[in-house]
Design a protein around this nucleic acid. Sequence first.
DNA 1: CTGAAAGCGCTAACAA
DNA 2: TTGTTAGCGCTTTCAG
Lengths: 337, 337
Amino acid sequence: MKNINIKELASELNLSVSTISKALHDSHEISDKTKRLVMETAARLNYVPNPYASSLRGRKTKNIGVVIPEVADSFFSLAINGIESVAKEKGYHVLICLTHESFENEKNILKEFQGGRVDGVLMSVSGETCQSDHINDLISSGVPLIFFDRICDDVATAKITTDDFESGYKATEHLLQAGCEKIAFLSISNSLSISNKRLEGYLKAHTDYRLNVAKERIVLCTDDNAKNYAAIKALLQQSLTADGIVASVEKLTTPIYKACAELTLRIPQDVKVVCFSNLETASILNPSLTTITQPAFEMGNTAARLLFTSLEKANFDLTKESTVIPSALIIRNSTSQ
Amino acid sequence: MKNINIKELASELNLSVSTISKALHDSHEISDKTKRLVMETAARLNYVPNPYASSLRGRKTKNIGVVIPEVADSFFSLAINGIESVAKEKGYHVLICLTHESFENEKNILKEFQGGRVDGVLMSVSGETCQSDHINDLISSGVPLIFFDRICDDVATAKITTDDFESGYKATEHLLQAGCEKIAFLSISNSLSISNKRLEGYLKAHTDYRLNVAKERIVLCTDDNAKNYAAIKALLQQSLTADGIVASVEKLTTPIYKACAELTLRIPQDVKVVCFSNLETASILNPSLTTITQPAFEMGNTAARLLFTSLEKANFDLTKESTVIPSALIIRNSTSQ
DNA sequence: CTGAAAGCGCTAACAA
DNA sequence: TTGTTAGCGCTTTCAG
């Protein structure tokens, strides 16, 4: 059952190609009878139009690009669900591109997109990204791009974020109120908006509670989990130690728990832990984990919705459409009792 | 910085379009000098070819489709990593399509692919799929398709699986040896190959250990986590109860742990649990979870590699290329001590 | 070594 | 209401 094209369909029906095309698009200039005939025959012969042939004629590829650092992360996989749900509704497909936190990869991906592989892009920048020419280039080449979660401040487009500063503040305040005095902050990037804002919230909470922050307790983690594990162990062993940890990213959960087990530190008695995390298993960890849970699905969904309205309405101004959706602090046993 | 096309690039250099095209493809019939000139100008003017225009001329879209039930699952997100790593190496892009365990969705996606949106497909069938015409149609329309993990037996193509029967056997045997006598099996589909083979392993272990299986302890779970939770609770409460659980799919972990907590059943003293799971957090759960861990990355990677060789070599016979990669039983505290 | 021209599958202006 | 034709951006014969 070879796939048939519009020409073969036309000759099958002794109609012209353009009549077929119009009929398939339910054009008003085709009689109902012909439409029905065309539709039926198309179905019978299993005709499926080539989307890229139509895309050439100025129409759309019906593909959107999603550029993210990784998939094996609850936040991103839930965000993808949010994106996919609206893409499907709009008859679009989702091209997932992974940067693996590399700026180089990110640049290459966006460059490629300039050639017209996708109609629009949703993106969370890599941990290395601190420059935005590649993004501005893509946008000015006519491909709309919207950020979600991890943004670039100096790109003029819509940004769907969560309240990172407030969340960093809330997490830290929660630990302070639970009696911690030596709270560490685990960051994953010096350039990343989310990391910095969460850190600012952490710092502000300390200021408000008239507590000093020791620089040694602000630890930059990497993409390498073994190194992160070592860094966390070092943090918990060094002379200053720490009696509380705010981890700004989900994947640090396992190294933290393992480091504590290894050092026979009890959570929460010796160290209290709160993680930015969307892990479903947070509630069944040992002990259950206090989290800042981001509205991952909703963020992806909102970003995608916005992208489609900008694709549908010409001259829609994305600049004015940024949204902040709040995260929730969910208190569990890693910080209390 | 509007994106430039090959025509504009040609007129910029006072060369013909075909010369440009050949130069860009490093054709031997173009002088080195011209090639260099073209390359440089292309880079300077930020020329990026339109992949779909080339695809029209018989070449490839450089997109592959990945059809899976969901992304928010460690197995699938790790498998995507395995697929993406080879796609990237080959200059390909990955279109992720989610069936959400719906046969209807799956059919629509494959139908759409027949139009030429992708050059090849990697797929794990939905839990509802028990019929394979839609798959055979796609393949016979000329789009190669390879299964990974969840296969359809009656489709003649390569299948990258893990040793589901043996794993089901090993998991059950492990519980039997730990002293369980009333082991429940949580399935997710009656039609799914993996579910059935794991179940067969479970049954065979019982036969070999001369134990009867109570039908009530084989529970069909669904896509609905709330219902699963209720079903598991019912299972643990009913007169026959269960002193061991083999869960054939990762997402049942949380409902199992919660149901036990709710019923104040202790794991592993009252109920021992083993899950098919790639959760990174398995080791830090309360208690840590014994798992059958699948070679997710490797399965995706192998499937993708195979797809590309079939894309590269004409008449490559996928039928002869099925591979079974073994899973590992990782014993932790949910079944011992 | 370079260029002209046809055509991939489709859409859309323009004719009929 | 239907058909003819040009052309989207590119590759690829075939001529020069």
